[in-house]
Design a protein around this nucleic acid. Structure first.
Length: 479
RNA sequence: CGAGGUGUAGCGCAGUUUGGUAGCGCGCUUGGUUCGGGACCAAGAGGUCGUGGGUUCAAGUCCCGUCACCUCGACCA
């Protein structure tokens, strides 16, 4: 087996030191840099382009399901936060406060939003008067600040970018449907754009959002067997409606509190992409999210006709909507091969005098790095589009197969511990009690991930206490 | 927040034990030769040693404070 450093000398061996590999990859591929304030990150152009693609694909789906975008202020009166008891308890420890303007102390301190349920609830109480005003289906693209103690680029940063949908409905059923619908959108997006299979399901009471009646999540398995909560959708019930006095006059002439949902995904998705697909060469980006889908490398670029042909191919591909980069720099071809593999570009086309003579390009797929084949220049855009589709499909199937072999169904604490301590998720029955969850956390540093919608039992007793089981649930170590 | 580690040129590091002219590799600039898996030659540029104070004739090196980052833990939609 080839050593990692035979290919890439800039990044740590993924098998020997996964955390270092992650840090090396995010920094050296130009996705991100550290900001000067603790826990902040600068998203560099390559990383931001990835985020823009994620944004565009999600935004399309939000609009297609009837949502509109709006923008709410970043500064929130502190008193808003305290209106919902569980909410303030959950967020107060990590909110940043604005207390002064210049040297003057403010009469009321302001919260830099950690999430926007409160300020949006306040506004909705003014906007919602009648059943005719419902449903409210609004999404916001924004930054939020949470002063976490331990931070890592994309996975947990003091400030991050996300979207948060906030909806209001006349009935419980409608709000619950919305909550699950958007979870479904996240799952479909992850599968078809990011090539990541997600475990979808309901969070335990312990793990749910502060202020929600129920939280659902998409959970992705990383290559080290740990879980990354990649998105959440909350059924808020009437909690915020009551706290912010959102009421509507219904058809029957009585005032009622509406039911709400909120749902969000963040730049953490970029972390999921990195850790679900990478390998010893670096990043492996899914084609439909990749900033560069195909890189063109001219060989012997000084020779007559080479650059002309390369630019002609570039134009053909761009006309077909493919994101292309030509690297005609002075770096050697070998350097470029390694560089774009490290950056995770899905497809590389080499075009040199020999190729042009034969009417082909020499191609290499990132998901099968090291292998080369030829693609006819005739109708090349169609060929490239087909290849990108195949690469996507192969990446998804690879991730799915990895996940399937790293879930262990367990019947005892011993088995559960063995599973999560050797890079697996554990699937078990559970009594539903917080005590058992705490015990598993204490013994194995593993937490409940979620309860799948398919509750077909894998036993009848709780894996921890042996009492009658109520739920089937995934456990795992988490980021 | 606890334990451990690291801050010296853009990046990676040596130098700190034993105080005495700021070093190496990569990258960068210029010129030339190269070009199908990280090319080569030549000449250059680049550093108040994270930061504040102290000891000393003299501090990257010793002492005190402080900040940031990394790993593990605790915490954390």
């Amino acid at each position: 087996m080839a050593k990692a450093n035979e290919f890439v000398k800039d990044i740590a061996d993924i098998n020997a030191d996964f955390p270092q590999w992650y840090t090396d990859v995010v920094l050296k591929t130009g996705l991100v840099d550290y900001g000067p304030v603790k826990g902040t990150m600068v998203i560099k152009p390559y990383g931001y382009a990835l985020w823009e693609n994620i944004q565009r694909e999600l935004d399309m789906r939000f609009k297609a399901t009837g949502h509109e975008n709006a923008y709410f202020p970043m500064l929130i009166p502190y008193s808003f936060l305290t209106k919902e008891a569980e909410h303030v308890e959950g967020f107060a420890p990590e909110v940043a406060l604005v207390t002064h303007v210049g040297d003057t102390e403010l009469p009321e301190k302001l919260v830099v939003r950690p999430t926007s349920e409160t300020i949006i609830g306040h506004m909705y109480s003014k906007w919602v008067q009648s059943y005719r005003d419902l449903p409210v289906l609004v999404n916001q693209w924004a930054n939020v600040v949470r002063w976490e103690k331990t931070t890592r680029p994309f996975l947990r940063t003091s400030e991050f970018l996300w979207q948060e949908g906030h909806t209001v409905h006349a009935t419980r059923e409608e709000a619950e449907d919305e909550t699950l619908k958007m979870l479904g959108v996240y799952e479909e997006f992850s599968r078809n754009v990011l090539a990541i299979p997600m475990f979808t399901g309901k969070k335990s009471e312990k793990e749910k959002f502060a202020g929600a009646d129920a939280t659902y999540s998409i959970e992705a398995m990383m290559l080290d067997g740990k879980s990354l909560q990649s998105g959440t959708s909350h059924y808020l019930g009437q909690n915020f409606a009551k706290a912010f006095d959102i009421r509507f006059l219904d058809k029957d002439g009585t005032h009622k509190y509406p039911y709400q949902s909120s749902w969000g995904v963040s730049t953490r998705l970029i972390g999921a992409v990195i850790m679900a697909h990478g390998d010893e060469r670096g990043l492996k980006l899914p084609p439909y999210a990749a900033p560069i889908q195909t890189v063109l490398i001219p060989i012997a670029a000084h020779k007559a006709g080479v650059l002309e042909k390369v630019n002609e191919i570039k134009t053909n591909l761009e006309r077909a909507g493919i994101r292309v980069k030509v690297d005609a720099s002075d770096n050697s071809p070998g350097w470029k091969f390694n560089e774009y593999e490290m950056k995770g570009v899905p497809l590389r086309l080499e075009i040199g005098p020999r190729d042009i003579e034969s009417g082909v390009a020499t191609a290499s797929r990132r998901d099968k790095a090291g292998e080369k084949f030829t693609v006819p220049l005739y109708n090349i855009a169609d060929s490239v589009n087909l290849l990108l589709k195949e690469i996507h499909e192969n990446m998804y199937q690879t991730a799915l197969a990895f996940r399937n072999t790293h879930v262990k169904t367990v019947q005892s604490m011993q088995e559960l511990g063995d599973a999560v301590n050797s890079g697996n998720f554990a699937l078990s029955m559970w009594c539903g009690d917080r005590e058992c969850e705490d015990k598993i956390k204490e013994q194995f540093q593993a937490s409940s991930r979620n309860m799948p919608f398919d509750q077909t039992p894998v036993g009848d007793k709780c894996v921890c206490c042996g009492k009658k089981a109520k739920h089937k649930i995934y456990w795992g170590k988490a980021y």
